[in-house]
Nucleic acid binder design. Structure first.
Lengths: 216, 216
DNA sequence: CGAGCGATTGAAAAGACTCAACCACCGTGG
DNA sequence: CCACGGTGGTTGAGTCTTTTCAATCGCTCG
């Protein structure tokens, strides 16, 4: 299994043993809630396989998808470290295999493994930079431009497989209405930028789509 | 001077001596660039007094203000630690007194002071949570609602003093056009929510404004 | 088969932006 | 002292993107 950018990459073999002894692996079906906004976390979750949406719901019932997590990603550590309540929710969008690490065990690992602390700090930095980027994009760019950006991100997420999301999830990621996404997608299809097969979307002309993310 | 939530709060007296020996204090006039997006940082800046806008400019020349920094805030450390180029710019909006700490000196302090590392991690967490909040706000709420939210944030920033920003900066913070801000402000003035004296804005009815940030 | 969910399409409405003109204030230099 | 230029603030009108609402369709599952 590829662990190039995972927490497991930075764990010493000694701590790895510790980890093995405390983790609990679980399989979740698609559309299962893992974390719920406003609650405490009981520990952290490390994704082995499958994709999970991280989102925030606003008062009016709309949800904004912040990012998608996939294998190697760690969920819940920020909230756990700060001892806050969760600011976001997480729900599987496919069947997922996930390891759960109890709060106390994780904190212990953090104390003992400086590389882990290092890695978490880098993760936080990275995420923060991404959020700043996302914010300015949301503020300045048109729905079409944002949709193009989203498709490129999702292409990465799906690693060559066609993008497979409900239009609603796509809309909640882009930050727009479902109908707008549908209209723009069919526009882009007729321009030969993408291919659509039911729910599945395949990027055809990556270069032009990339260009579209630079303007408007 | 109040240092309740500053880097200086977490520095041991020993490190404080080190800090004193390596810092350089500088006074900047209003509208002076401190950090420039896309460049390397030469060190970190700690604000003694005055206010600074942190913003990101997009290709089309628009700028999005990410946040305002004031006394006690530290600038540039995220970029410095990650050894990246700056993702944002920083410009004073008032006369500011700022301490500069050379890159190497700061890294040395980080190695020697675990509380400093701790503090930085908390800062990052906090900032990340704020950015996530800002993103969903930008995506879901109307300009008026965002403007109300901005006014409450700025009221904090100005600590009781009237808010004193150009309409343009206010617009770039809210993520809208200058004209929209002007129109909405005069609307809110006629509703008795705020008071306007030239450039200066005073919040009158905090409760109603707060309510407005919950909807739309 | 019928219910239900997601996708699609059309039409109307609304929110926000752009453009353009104008004003008010302030500091400068003649 | 006053005319001048510049910056920032204000207002109005028209436009356009995007949303919302409503209706329809197609598919799957019980």
């Amino acid at each position: 299994m590829a662990m190039d950018h995972s927490i497991l990459k930075v764990i010493s073999s000694e701590n790895m043993k510790l980890l093995d002894s405390v983790k609990h692996c679980i399989i979740y079906k698609a559309e299962t809630d893992i974390l719920t906004q406003g609650t405490q976390v009981r520990g952290v979750y490390c994704i082995n396989s499958g994709k999970i949406k991280i989102y925030k719901s606003s008062g009016s019932g709309k949800e904004q998808i912040i990012r998608f997590a996939k294998k190697g990603d760690l969920l819940g550590y920020r909230t756990l470290i700060a001892n806050h309540k969760l600011g976001v929710s997480a729900t599987t969008i496919e069947e997922c295999s996930v390891c759960f690490i109890e709060r106390e065990d994780f904190l212990k690992m953090m104390v003992e493994a400086p590389q882990l602390r290092e890695w978490l700090m880098e993760e936080l930095s990275e995420d923060l930079a991404e959020m700043v980027e996302a914010l300015t994009t949301m503020a300045h760019r048109s729905v079409r431009s944002r949709l193009c950006g989203a498709l490129l991100v999702l292409e990465e997420l799906y690693e060559g497989e066609p993008i497979n999301l409900t239009r609603e999830n796509l809309a909640n990621f882009v930050g727009t209405a479902k109908e707008s996404v549908i209209r723009l997608l069919s526009e882009m299809k007729s321009e030969g930028l993408i291919q659509i097969a039911g729910r599945k979307i395949t990027v055809i002309n990556r270069v032009l789509i990339k260009t579209a993310t630079q303007f408007s």
